[in-house]
Amino acid sequence: MPKLTINGIEVLVEKGTTVLEAARFFGIPIPTLCHDDGLAPASACRLCVVEARRGLEAKSKLLAACSLPAEDGLVVHTNSARVQRARQLLIELYVATCPSSKRIQDLASAYGVHECRYEAEHETCIQCGLCVRMCEQQMMAGAIGFAGRGADRHVSRPFDKTSERCRQCGACLYVCPVCELRCAGPAAESTLCNGCLNFAPVCFQSYNDAMCFLDPCHACELAGPLRPDVKIKTRANATVLSGEKQ
């Protein structure tokens, strides 16, 4: 059993364990956006970076805990100043990309990110790849995948048509950390108020506002919260038009 040090504590873990699993097992929190216990690690969101030094290496490096094997002699710090700074800068970048995601806002508030120096982009996807891996590894369908490179990279269906392999199970929506209703919280001027609505994932496809790879469903057509003509109530009792963009 490999013996490693996490935050100064020597721990023994099963062979084949990742540092993320080990840390969480011992109650040490590490934030993630692209990790799910049932899926292969993607190391894409980089939020789980930890400061790690392997055996004889002179310098420690920031490595993604989700794909870092727990090896003998590994020395890991999950919350050093360097890790904190990297996470804060990352979260700031995430907030700018998807300011309305509750998951991201919660992270911002947990890691003390109070300002965002970038212009908000309101993208509908952070390319964590959870949906792609869920579809492939758990639903055994492989009906969606990544297409394009760099700025053009996006989740897509084959030839932009729903694949025959898609069973319309909705697992892709279920795991998505960002396709939630855009926050219009109590303080409209702040994107980081943390008072957002937490709606269950809904179907957006017909509104072209977020990614949904399912056919429009009945519930969505009837009471889709993004339909501009339907008024919904926020938690702070403020009434907003759900179709409004910030």
Binding site: A44, L90, L93, Y118, G150, A151, R153
Partner: peptide
Amino acid sequence: LEDESCGQCFPCRKGTQR
């Protein structure tokens, strides 16, 4: 580099864009 970044990991994709 923005063009050639594979886009897989967030800091590289968004970092080069920003």
